[in-house]
Write a protein that binds this DNA or RNA. Sequence first.
DNA 1: CGAGGCTTGTCCGGAATCGAACACCCTCTG
DNA 2: CAGAGGGTGTTCGATTCCGGACAAGCCTCG
Lengths: 180, 180
Amino acid sequence: MDGIAVLVVEDDPDVRRSARVALAPHTERVEEVESAAELESVLAAGAFNVVLLDMNFVAGERSGAAGLDALGRIRSFDPTIAVVLMTAYGGVTLAVDSLKRGAADFVLKPWRNDKLVAAIGAAAEVTRSRRATETLQLAALERSAIERALARFQGNISSAASALGLSRAALYRRMAKHGL
Amino acid sequence: MDGIAVLVVEDDPDVRRSARVALAPHTERVEEVESAAELESVLAAGAFNVVLLDMNFVAGERSGAAGLDALGRIRSFDPTIAVVLMTAYGGVTLAVDSLKRGAADFVLKPWRNDKLVAAIGAAAEVTRSRRATETLQLAALERSAIERALARFQGNISSAASALGLSRAALYRRMAKHGL
DNA sequence: CGAGGCTTGTCCGGAATCGAACACCCTCTG
DNA sequence: CAGAGGGTGTTCGATTCCGGACAAGCCTCG
């Protein structure tokens, strides 16, 4: 799993070490922070493609609220990065809530190393895919929309043009422009 | 919750009745099927905006595989419709796997009626939002991309134009066309 | 077999868009 | 304080794109 840079957010030094031991042989880089206080600056500086985020790093707090808050901040900062949440206390409700709020995966502590590695690998792939498809280039968006329309209508030019809001002649020109 | 049409997929008649009793006062229509055999034709005929899907409707089978298979078929047929999964046997792993495969929510049996109603309401909103944003109209896609670019670059016309692959003058014209 | 409805690909006079250039403003640095 | 570097909004001759119309083909139905 070359090219994977993981940021581990975890207050417990034993768990941080366990994560590093599990992940380091399978990734390019594992960095750790003890709290979520400076998440944005660490993320900005670090070119990560996965975050492994503890849900409870406030002493005595077990609800997962801190982790969900941090998840929200990470997603605001970089919506493309996949976040894997981990907790020792989670039930179905917390897991479901986490994924609904945008976590890519949810891991219970103590984990099996092979499952953690697999989860991180899958999450990195989610980040890769999100980053590949996020573009603002109008030409690329137009080409993609034309391809989807042609697929949707099995190559029927009249229907595809209508769906795209173009005349048939205009669609022919756009198709030629994009080499379709 | 006007305008919500729910399809309940559940083999147990007692559970089907419980779902109907819980949901009927809060929705426009509740229909039920006993198995997933004819899902696509029922969905095609019915104009639903939520599916409440049991995970286990194969006798003796408790793994949830049947429900996940049905989820996949529903999503292939109509990727915009929100699916709420329900099971009596699910743990964190099954819940996480369900959401990763595209379920909008996950409900454990026996449910609390108010929570089921809330989950269905939220799922209907997910369907509404997905259907609103799925468009092939190039003009709408262009407007949306311009808005995202302006937001991304805090209104900086030069940077937004560059990201969109347009000249500044062209961007000004597109913005005027879209009333931005 | 022929009509009707749908599809296809192409054309061309007119309309719309193009982007380099212009003039100007603001901030930062030497 | 002046100059550099970034930004802004607008202009206009050149270029590209527009869509209704045309001609033709295919499929279904009476």
